[in-house]
Computed example of a mutant assay.
Amino acid sequence: MNYFYVFSGKKIKRIFFLIVAALFAAGVVYVESDNITVFSEGSPSAIYSVPTEKKVVALTFDISWGEKRTGPILDVLEQKGVKKATFFLSSPWSKTHPDLVKRIVSAGYEIGSHGHKHVNYSSLSDEEIKKQITTAHDILGQLTGKQPNLIRMPNGDFDKRVLRIANNLNYKVIQWDTDSLDWKNPGVDTIVNRVVNKAHPGDIILLHASDSCKQTHLALPTIIDQLRAKGYEFVTVSELVQQTEMKNKTIQDKTTMQQHFHDAIGL
């Protein structure tokens, strides 16, 4: 016995639209997959760099002690016309160097937290981790007049607990993709070559402005010149993150639009 299947025009139309919608969704996920990975829903994660095709990088400076290197670094940034950078300040240093903090803020640079005690937070209890973050938050807020929402943990150390607690306190944990290793004082040329050769679009570059880093201010002018020669612009960490969050929102909007499309054709 032979069987014949009869497809109405309406069914064919629905199948066609279903295939088109599926291909559209696959394309969006493929193109924006990096953005979804960085800002995926679920457990909090640290940010090392931001996926983008734009030639933008964020210069970041950690400061935890000393007063000899910060001024020269700020001088270089001013002389080179770099108006956007992010400084991660420890709260004890900030309390003892309010004039330098004021200068950083007055220059318009972004302030992030570098915590309170300079210890590995993964070795602390949940309550102590929270105390370290909130103590630094209160001190930096009082000194700068702004509430920081970025934090770089001392020594770059964290675990899932630290990420979760920081996230609950409305902080984004910021790491880096390019490490200058300037704290080793390996030589000006070595610092320059390491940063310039490793830098890439969306990169977060780690530098230091503490006294132990004696060559950073000497390497910085050449780093700035060579990155600019490659077509890079300097932005804050928040600007990098915001750029990707906007792209991620675009994905969500496209997904919602696709669902409305499905509903409209009865799929």
Rank of each mutant, 00 (worst) to 15 (best):
N2L: 07
Y3C: 04
Y5W: 09
Y5G: 13
Y5Q: 11
S8Q: 09
K11H: 04
K13Y: 15
R14T: 09
I15W: 09
I15Y: 11
F16L: 15
F16I: 12
L18A: 04
A25E: 03
D34L: 14
E41L: 13
S43K: 15
A46M: 02
V50D: 10
T52Q: 14
E53T: 12
K55E: 03
A58I: 09
L59M: 05
F61A: 09
D62K: 03
D62R: 06
I63D: 07
E67M: 15
Q79Y: 14
G81I: 08
K83A: 15
K84W: 11
P92M: 12
P92A: 07
W93D: 14
K102W: 03
K102Y: 09
I104R: 01
V105S: 10
Y109G: 11
E110A: 13
G112H: 10
S113L: 10
Y121T: 10
Y121W: 13
L124P: 00
E127I: 02
H137M: 02
L140I: 00
L140C: 12
Q142C: 07
T144E: 01
K146G: 01
K146P: 03
K146E: 08
P148D: 05
P148F: 00
R152Q: 12
P154H: 00
P154T: 06
P154F: 00
N155V: 00
K160R: 06
A166C: 13
A166V: 13
N168A: 03
K172E: 15
V173A: 07
D177H: 14
T178P: 11
D179E: 04
D179G: 08
D179V: 13
S180H: 05
L181P: 06
D182G: 12
W183Y: 14
G187D: 13
I191Y: 01
I191E: 05
V192E: 06
R194Y: 00
V196M: 07
A199R: 07
A199T: 12
A199Q: 06
D203W: 07
L206F: 02
D211R: 04
S212H: 02
S212Q: 10
S212K: 05
K214D: 15
Q215W: 10
A219I: 00
A219Q: 01
A219K: 04
I223P: 04
D225R: 08
R228G: 04
L240W: 08
V241C: 06
V241S: 03
Q242G: 05
Q243G: 00
N248C: 09
K249F: 02
Q252M: 08
Q252E: 04
D253A: 09
D253Y: 09
T256K: 15
M257F: 13
H260M: 13
F261C: 04
G266S: 07
